[in-house]
Design a protein around this nucleic acid. Sequence first.
DNA 1: ATCAGTTATGGTCAAAGTGACCATAACTAG
DNA 2: CTAGTTATGGTCACTTTGACCATAACTGAT
Lengths: 236, 236
Amino acid sequence: MYYGSANVSERQAAPPSLAISTVIFALRPSESSGRPTLWLPLVRRIREPFKGLWALPGGPLSHDESLQDAASRSLRETTGLAPRYLEQLYAFGGLHRSPTQRVVSIVYWALVQPTEAALADVSENVKWFRADRLGELAFDHNAIVDYALWRLRNKLAYGSVAYHLLGEYFTLAQVREVYEAVLDRELDPANFRRQLKSTPEIEETDEFLQGGKHRPPRLYRFTGRPGLDPDNRSTP
Amino acid sequence: MYYGSANVSERQAAPPSLAISTVIFALRPSESSGRPTLWLPLVRRIREPFKGLWALPGGPLSHDESLQDAASRSLRETTGLAPRYLEQLYAFGGLHRSPTQRVVSIVYWALVQPTEAALADVSENVKWFRADRLGELAFDHNAIVDYALWRLRNKLAYGSVAYHLLGEYFTLAQVREVYEAVLDRELDPANFRRQLKSTPEIEETDEFLQGGKHRPPRLYRFTGRPGLDPDNRSTP
DNA sequence: ATCAGTTATGGTCAAAGTGACCATAACTAG
DNA sequence: CTAGTTATGGTCACTTTGACCATAACTGAT
């Protein structure tokens, strides 16, 4: 092992490069059932390694921006999205993530509301995929998406993330559909409703959603805070 | 803004440097009450910036080691510790963490058992401090420790971290003391016991702890898994 | 040997929370 | 006006949780 005894300046001569990537989740109606399911945008690699494969949007960290800013910027540049919910997921730094060089990726995950997701750029090289039906992705991005999904399910159980996948106003049934889509199981409407009703962060409005062929459901609104990250915790 | 329009090679000319640090928690008897409390080892800065202040153990990431290996190694080199529980905490990348250069720190947190903690090197420049009585630390390390404490409390509520602060065999009262130290509130012995009893991961042994001036408590042993990190999840 | 002091351990009871399920309300489409 | 559909409210049995009491089993002092 050469590097084991390398001194500081030698190490700095070949530092691992640092990249920022983001897993972006949005709800879209499934093509088959029409029920909402999780989707995420990927970008096609236009150069080696993994040229032609799909990968998470991302890019290098530039000198004058924070990690979160870098995530926001790379998102905006590649997909046109500006998610309201953006949180650090994990730093991936395995030795062989990239065949050509050592790369440490600090990965963020984001939730976007459907209206916003609809505005996302879609092109030859940017496309949305169902989160549960991804093919082989570049690098270790399959594992990263898996972990992001696991985190999403966890946070959902905890509390206040579901609303960031919905618009400002929503029905309780829509919240339930989010839970059902993410957790992949059906929930009892009445019991689920009872729980949400006991959550102080969900505010009843005087509006009702018209247009269904049934009794119009009441619209609600979320009034809580998003994150508990060190980068978010102080924000009052 | 110069960097905003910089091309790739210009950005790479001045990359943020990457460091690994670790927050290490161990239980030690409080000097006043004798009850177990949280302590952590810090190292004194021997050069600028923040020369003379105490800081988290850590160091640069060398080219041929994974993030977790780097954390382990820097721990071993600075404190002599080799914790069994080691998990990624967060990547801190604010612009002004270090006054001299841009540094991104990937921070780990560790739990060590008391027997192991007792072996830790202590010297002029390595010392243990009570987690709730730290002075001003170098860089943003106070904020990092706060976040690590918050994470520890959270994980404790979830389940299976407390045992990594204890030896292989322990009494239920010792587990309770861990909870009381970390959560900083008293818990009902009988109720706490009832909960642990319903946890399948805690195995009753035939041994009893002798030596107290009261009825000898039974010894138990933890048989569960530690982590759910992407770096740990696959380990069966 | 006996007793006081101390923690371990088992149990009760009421309050709160959860899952399964039923009934009615309020809309639309025909 | 009726059938179809989802919204919404409620019941009931079961589980979990917190507060609390009682007894068990040790040590150390008398």
